[in-house]
Design a protein around this nucleic acid. Structure first.
Lengths: 139, 139
DNA sequence: ATTAAAATTACAAAAGATAATCATTTATTT
DNA sequence: AAATAAATGATTATCTTTTGTAATTTTAAT
């Protein structure tokens, strides 16, 4: 089975009807764990798919988020960023270079949903920001 | 000492030069712990200060955030929200009504900055979202 | 295989939030 | 008080995201 069909199957697990565009976006997200913005995804895919529109990227990602297949990160106030890794992990954003790092090794207790009387918690987002080591070593 | 002077003193603690506008914005934030948006702050203050401009609200809040006097929350993707309570606490945003709740009673361990090799962490943001009890009881 | 209906996509335009510019006002220093 | 610096306000510009609508593609039915 080729990669394209694997992603079809993957999308169907989230109750998402596959299309060429949706498959391409998910393939991109699974291959680029850099928490890309809409713009980056569009810029990367549009050469191969000249008719692709940015609206479709927006629609597709909103659908993915609704279906729980992708996380929309709020860590970057400027642009929404997307992450196909939906396992428990936190993020660190560098205020200098803007890069978003994954933090997998934190205590899993952090991601537990606290019991809040009468509240239903859907999502937990843990974000750190500061200066990354690359930027720190530049001066 | 009146309230206006108290806020003057408070701003100076953060190395912020007080002005009529800055004092009014900080006074508003200290009195309204609802994590207001720029728009809400402007709408509330502008009747009393007819010449107040939205630019000043933006400038003032950016200054407050830079000086560490106010937190800018990323929890709401639509608008930046501001919080004058800079003590360790998390937030819950209701996806139905949009209200942002404070969560003070969580384990303080959550707010510890993890040791990341070579990284300097400035800020920690812990955000939950879902449906609040008021909205849950509406249907 | 045709046709009709539904879903998806694409383009254009609009809306909304934030930033940049610059003139004006206010505060500070000499 | 004059000169300088800082803060404010009005306007404009930019950028992200959403919306409306039409075209296209897919699905289902005959």
């Amino acid at each position: 089975m080729n990669n394209y069909m694997q992603i079809h199957k993957y999308l169907k697990q989230f109750d998402i009807k596959p299309s060429v565009q949706r498959t391409a976006v998910m393939e991109y997200l699974l291959a680029h764990k850099t928490h890309p913005t809409i713009e980056e995804i569009y810029a990367s895919l549009s050469p191969q798919m000249p008719t692709l529109s940015k609206t479709t990227i927006y629609n597709t990602l909103n659908l993915f988020v609704d279906k729980g297949a992708v996380l929309q990160l709020a860590i970057d106030e400027k642009n929404a960023r997307y992450d196909a890794d939906i396992s428990d992990h936190a993020h660190f954003m560098c205020n200098s270079c803007g890069k978003v790092y994954d933090l997998f090794s934190l205590n899993k207790e952090l991601f537990k949903k606290p019991a809040l009387e009468g509240f239903d918690i859907n999502s937990v987002e843990i974000s750190y920001s500061g200066i990354c080591s690359s930027c720190k070593n530049l001066n």
